[in-house]
Design a protein around this nucleic acid. Structure first.
Length: 648
RNA sequence: GCCACUUUAGCUCAGAUGGUAGAGCAACUGAUUCGUAAUCAGUAGGUCAGCGGUUCAAGUCCGCUUAUCGGCUCCA
């Protein structure tokens, strides 16, 4: 008999060799039907595998991350089986589960897949799933495994095998398909009820750009059609909210081939939105003791030689520009910190001056590979909401806490309530690649961990993810569709103070080196705008909306009154204009609704005579009539309320 | 940078198999002066992304380039 311990701590005895499915059956048949895999002492294995020793057992279902990934991994095998049956001779690379579904990399030997092939494969997968074929695990000797794939002429599998240790090699088969695989897998293909192949793309073999480009087929599967439909609906919604689409529709920004790719042009409405965001943050920063500074868009190449960036990124940057006569070289600034270091150095600093917080909405230029550009989220010219905090080592923790406060304040003000923080620390094995003293690193790493804990942040610690110059904390926010974005970042830096020889005079009259903290709550105005746009689907809160109110006269007889109302609104700092086109009111309302303007004021004879406005709210419709002065107070209050949490 | 798809009017898109371009919306003009998501009519607008090639003839076929898009790789 073996002793099985369940996650809730309960213990039960089973006969040796019972599988997770057997154990699930002893609890309930319904549960047994849902079990996809089992986590035994922390390791995920097939639900059908016999358990021979006392163990902690967690039954994994669709609701567990491990269950989902097992399900999708098995689906990848099903995809491969379908491809092999329709296109014999296809060579297979790897086929893992990913966050949303799975893929399989295949070599078609020069052929290409189109819609037709995809539809065929999908159909075949459904057919094979219906056969409820079991996923059978088999341990094989390395030589036999190599022999198998040599016969099959599958060079990629042989390459994978060469990197594996004999004695630990397993094959999984379902139906007519056998694959080299560590597993685990779901019991049989019958669990896979809904299948959708989503995408085809090229991908390098083993992710190396020197290797051959394989065809990657992406797909997603679910245990029910309903769940697949929900997912497809979500994809559709995401498409509707795509910031590139909304940016065009709402006239926020554009790109021009003539100006150059990756160089966004902010249109008036987009610029207004960005200004509002900037003012909002600027105000909060000034209240938190930041000092705004301004630096030029270029800097001597020497500056970046000093900072070390020339060495590290010089060849991947825009080439330096040179002066015509003297041949001096200048770089378009790829970052603001070296300039800020020089501001720090512009005057001797005392320990009493620290922390010194220099802030700048600094526009930087980076040469991004052409294939990387994407809407506003990946561009070649962008503005960081940058600041550098120069402080004494023992102030790092306190400063970190303050920055965390600021970042959380920014996020919640903009209606992002679901976020986690990733703490990136040094590689625990190899510390040679980091600069800065062990002592300082320990202070910084502990400061971050403690600061995050004291602020009650939901954190994940990643070892080996720290920058070479210091540990960092990145904020990941979830948007309204549940998608994760990396936004704000806080980074400790020992490198630049060293390289720029920054100093302060301490209380004991000795010169000391300050620590520098880089931080950007938005990350960049471009990227943040994109994320915000997708988060709120273009329906900005009134305080941010580029245009807050549109006044719609019923006919142009009431145009003058409409102008009067706009004047009243503008006097109260409300962004408003009149739709004075000779269109019917229905048309004006429709167009304004499509522009997602938060409020419409419809004015006709009745309103004009009584100094009133008929209020219509975007997405909600008629709100009734009120005095125009009343509306100004009404809206001003709403804006005040929306920014109440904010320091606006 | 690499692979695949795409590039037609301001926008969204039609234009089998080669025979010198079309719709809706937007714009402009006129009529209409209107009560909560599209008034009617007319006009104008395109060297079919650019360059080169094949052909009697290219939006259509073939190269190269630009940009977009989906991935890969990269991201101070």
């Amino acid at each position: 008999m073996i002793q099985i311990t369940f996650p809730d701590g309960a213990q039960r005895s089973y006969s040796k060799g019972s599988s997770a499915i057997d154990i699930a059956k002893s609890i309930s048949e319904g549960l047994a039907r849902k079990v996809l895999a089992a986590e035994v002492d922390g390791e995920i294995i097939d639900a059908m595998r016999p358990i021979n020793n006392d163990a902690h057992l967690k039954l994994l279902t669709w609701d567990d991350k491990g269950g989902k990934s097992t399900f999708w991994h098995s689906s990848a095998h099903l995809l491969a089986e379908a491809i092999e049956s329709i296109f014999p001779g296809t060579k297979f690379g790897i086929g893992p589960a990913i966050d949303n579904g799975f893929y399989y990399d295949i070599d078609l030997g020069g052929a290409a897949f189109g819609e037709e092939e995809i539809a065929k494969i999908e159909k075949k997968m459904k057919e094979l799933a219906g056969q409820k074929n079991q996923y059978l695990r088999k341990e094989v000797a390395k030589t036999d495994a190599i022999e198998y794939f040599t016969q099959k002429e599958d060079p990629y599998k042989i390459e994978l095998l060469e990197g594996l240790e004999d004695g630990k090699i397993t094959f999984y088969s379902q139906g007519a398909f056998t694959d080299l695989c560590r597993g685990p897998h779901i019991p049989n293909t019958g669990f896979i009820k809904a299948i959708k192949l989503t995408n085809i793309a090229g991908a390098y073999w083993r992710g190396n750009e020197k290797n051959k480009m394989l065809t990657r087929v992406y797909g997603i599967t679910y245990p029910s059609q309903k769940e697949l439909d929900d997912y497809l609906l979500l994809l559709e919604e995401a498409k509707k909210r795509d910031h590139r689409k909304l940016g065009k529709e709402l006239e926020l920004f554009t790109f021009s081939e003539k100006v150059g790719s990756g160089l966004p042009l902010w249109l008036p409405k987009g610029a207004m939105l960005r200004e509002r965001l900037q003012q909002f943050l600027q105000k909060a920063q000034i209240e938190s003791g930041y000092l705004p500074v301004i630096t030029p868009h270029i800097g001597s190449k020497q500056l970046y030689v000093t900072s070390g960036h020339w060495d590290k990124y010089g060849k991947d940057s825009f080439r330096p520009i040179t002066t015509p006569n003297e041949g001096e070289e200048f770089m378009l600034k790829p970052m603001n910190c070296p300039h800020h270091c020089e501001i720090y150095k512009s005057s001797p600093r005392s320990y009493k001056d620290l922390p010194l917080r220099l802030a700048e909405f600094g526009t930087v230029y980076r040469y991004e590979q052409s294939g990387e550009l994407h809407g506003l989220t990946r561009v070649r010219g962008f503005t960081q909401d940058d600041a550098h905090l120069f402080c004494r080592p023992e102030q790092v923790k306190e400063e970190f806490k303050k920055v965390i406060d600021l970042v959380m304040y920014v996020f919640t003000s903009l209606d992002f309530h679901d976020f986690t923080a990733q703490i990136s620390l040094r590689d625990q094995e190899d510390r040679s690649k980091y600069i800065g003293s062990e002592e300082n690193w320990l202070i910084a790493e502990n400061s971050i961990i403690e600061a995050a804990a004291e602020k009650g942040l939901n954190t994940v610690v990643e070892y080996g993810e720290a920058a070479f110059y210091g540990p960092k904390l990145d904020f990941m926010v979830k948007d309204a569709l549940g998608r994760s974005w990396q936004l704000g970042t806080i980074q400790v830096d020992y490198n630049l103070p060293e390289r720029f020889e920054l100093e302060y005079v301490d209380a004991d009259n000795t010169k000391k080196r300050p620590v520098m903290i880089h931080r950007a709550p938005f990350g960049s105005m471009e990227r943040f705008t994109a994320v915000l746009l997708e988060h709120c689907a273009g329906n900005f809160p009134v305080w941010l909306a580029p245009e807050q109110v549109k006044v719609l006269p019923i006919s142009d007889k009431f145009g003058d009154y409409a102008l009067e109302v706009v004047k009243l609104l503008k006097a109260a700092d409300i962004r408003a204009s009149v739709d004075d086109r000779q269109e019917k009111i229905g048309k004006k309302i429709r167009d304004t609704e499509l522009m997602k303007t938060p409020y419409m004021l419809i004015v006709g004879e009745k309103e004009m005579n009584e100094q009133k406005v008929a209020v219509r709210k975007h997405g909600e419709g008629d709100q009734g009539v009120m005095l125009n002065t009343e509306f100004v107070i009404f809206l001003t209050n709403i804006i005040k309320e929306q920014t109440a949490g904010t320091k606006n």
